[in-house]
Design a protein around this nucleic acid. Structure first.
Lengths: 216, 216
DNA sequence: ATAATGAATGAACAATCATTCATTTACTAT
DNA sequence: ATAGTAAATGAATGATTGTTCATTCATTAT
């Protein structure tokens, strides 16, 4: 993924390899969003990129590999974003958990084109183990972090009657469900409202840790 | 959908029209679950049904119409299930809301093959208005009912600091997210556990209405 | 039994798809 | 400038797809 010492020569007919690959991946995202995965063909992608038919087999060996790298690109971007958020967040578990949710509703993550890609691959993950494995990496780490944070908050706040795992699983499922609503029915679910729904859940779980949420 | 006065002649080579159509719809569900929507062809469906190639264009005019009717079938089944649950439920809003969640995690709804179909069409709904419209009907009614129930429970229980719409949207998003987890990672999310996550959410929202949930 | 009906078949067809590769084009080094 | 290298093209290819339809077959009515 390193761009390295690539000279800036945008618009030229021949671009450096990594730049073309990225361009094609982004064109793939747009094509999946516009036509759906079923109707995404080599032709729709290369047209979206403004390039020729053969370009895909030149830079990726096959259409299937392009699709896999497109999924990997989105998974990677998401992971980088929330790892960065964790680094920059404060020390308290409550802050760190809130920071994670900020990422989940960040414009770069909630972009409707990218959501199309997430759900396109999730939908086919049952029949394609390769897709599932790529996504499973994300889930495992992410869920573990959220679980730890919930556990800390519960013991810090001496909350009784809250199971950390139930709360954590609920939180991550809630996020996924809100993503789906934003994808399918964007008029009824904006990014900002989704964030509010998610924060309301946090407030009801841990009222003493998120008192300010009650006033929004 | 009325089977009417159809004589039972299972196994015969020529079945009544409605029976064949249902058989093909169920084969389509299995095919989408097994191969994904992208790789579901007329051939995979007819093979899954144990019938010949031409059968699909005979009973449905095209593959596209078969897919639409398959989605409509699942949407319909779900609607019938939760309308029936509402009729049979008690009068209190708390009971009625719990009854709805029971349906959401009913084996007939959470069947992994059917979840594959839901998500396959949701994933493509952005590019196919026809799919979105079919699903939108479900969402609108369902969300309205959940919202009303939440509103009633809030006023009954004099809960302060809970916005009914935030709670309702959260509840329906949570369900969808749990469905996704059951589809993508069934080992980590069973039907029973999903139900528990969802009930825990209810308990934290309305603790005085669902005291028993805290002991499970 | 026989004829009539229509459901089911599957080979054939046209369209669409991913992939290949000989050719063209652009950039770099000398 | 020129040769050499790499990138990009797009027509051609073979495989796959949805659809059609003449034929076969099972059931029903006479």
């Amino acid at each position: 993924m390193s761009v390295g010492s690539v000279r800036s020569n945008s618009g030229k007919r021949t671009e450096p390899k990594e730049k073309r690959r990225l361009q094609l991946i982004q064109a793939t995202i747009r094509s999946i969003a516009r036509h759906g995965l079923s109707d995404t063909t080599v032709s729709t992608v290369s047209t979206a990129a403004g390039l020729s038919q053969g370009i895909i087999n030149l830079h990726f060996q096959s259409k299937e590999k392009l699709l896999l790298e497109t999924l990997a690109y989105i998974v990677d971007e998401y992971k980088i974003l929330w790892e960065k958020a964790l680094k920059e967040a404060g020390d308290s578990s409550a802050e760190r958990l809130a920071a994670l949710l900020q990422v989940d509703f960040h414009p770069r993550v909630c972009d409707r084109n990218k959501l199309s890609v997430w759900f396109a691959f999730w939908a086919e993950s049952k029949s394609r183990p390769t897709y599932r494995k790529l996504c499973a990496g994300r889930d495992k780490e992410y869920d573990a972090v959220i679980f730890e944070l919930c556990k800390n908050i519960i013991s810090e706040g001496k909350y009784s009657g809250i199971d950390a795992e139930l709360a954590a699983r609920g939180l991550s499922a809630l996020t996924e469900g809100l993503w789906l609503d934003m994808l399918v029915n964007p008029r009824n679910m904006s990014r900002d409202y989704a964030r509010k729904v998610s924060m309301a859940y946090l407030f009801h779980l841990f009222p003493r840790h998120y008192p300010e949420l009650n006033k929004e």
